[in-house]
Design a protein around this nucleic acid. Structure first.
Length: 263
DNA sequence: ATGGCAGGTTATACCTGA
């Protein structure tokens, strides 16, 4: 079973890129973030035509929005509301093979890394705390569960282009990476990418639009993650961060991450 | 150290992203 995650930064604007990616990589399911569209206007047909006929969509106007598009059936969909906020930032499905997939879009947190003066940063920290509580409360750690999404935190030193220069920058501050570690511990998650890419090696999934030459400056961050529960750790066969897509015309600033599971 | 871009919106400037 192949699962992909991608912050698509507007599903309507990037439908051609989505088609190209799906044809090339043939995932069984793709989890999207930042779809930026209400459910009624979601381009369902484009995905249906490619075989992704099972669709769990949770969107809102203009911002955020998540969706899971799948070629394999799922029997259940659910969205949990975090921080008593109706933002569309989570959706989960349970496939007929028993695998439960969670798709998250964690708040970015804006610029100032101080929850006392920046309510968006406070929201981000609260969201991460609730994620940890959500999985602690869920229990049943023996279940086959996959958690993917734009977590908006680059946890390790080599998940950013300069650890020292980004320690005070939102996405890599100690309070954020500390909380993400708590989320990871809440379900004994395995960070799939780092099972294959050594911690000593740089790894990014996002490059800013603001660089004049994203590839030359290569100031990236690894914000997009695939985690698996202990029951699935042995089933992980490969992972790929599809870096070349950052260079496609009209690219998202995030690229997809793909995991292959022997299921 | 800084500035740099992109997407959406009852738009044509402003908010958000990270």
């Amino acid at each position: 079973m192949k699962i992909a995650t991608w912050n698509i930064n507007s599903v309507r604007l990037r439908i051609a890129l989505a088609k190209r990616f799906l044809k090339e990589h043939q995932p069984d399911a793709i989890a999207l973030q930042e779809t930026k569209v209400v459910n009624d206007l979601f381009p369902r047909q484009a995905f249906t035509e490619l075989g992704y006929v099972h669709q769990a969509i949770h969107g809102q106007k203009g911002y955020h929005g998540v969706a899971i598009l799948s070629r394999v059936p799922f029997r259940e969909t659910f969205s949990h509301e975090f921080c008593s906020n109706s933002d569309c930032r989570h959706i989960q499905v349970t496939f007929d093979n028993g695998v439960e997939l969670h798709d998250f879009y964690v708040p970015a947190g804006a610029d100032i890394p101080d929850p006392l003066v920046n309510p968006k940063f406070a929201h981000k920290l609260g969201f991460l705390r609730e994620m940890a509580a959500f999985f602690e409360t869920r229990g049943r750690r023996g279940d086959p569960v996959v958690m993917v999404g734009d977590l908006n935190v680059a946890p390790l030193e080599n998940d950013v282009w300069s650890h020292k220069q980004l320690l005070g920058v939102v996405s890599h501050t100690p309070v954020e990476t500390g909380l993400l570690a708590q989320v990871k511990a809440s379900f004994d998650w395995t960070d799939v990418t780092r099972e294959f890419v050594p911690a000593s090696e740089k790894s990014y999934s996002w490059w800013s639009y603001r660089a004049s030459d994203w590839a030359a400056s290569d100031r990236g961050r690894r914000l997009d993650h695939i985690w698996v529960s202990p029951a699935l750790k042995a089933a992980v066969k490969s992972q790929q961060i599809v870096k070349k897509m950052r260079g496609w015309k009209l690219a998202s600033d995030h690229v997809p991450v793909v995991v292959e599971l022997a299921l």
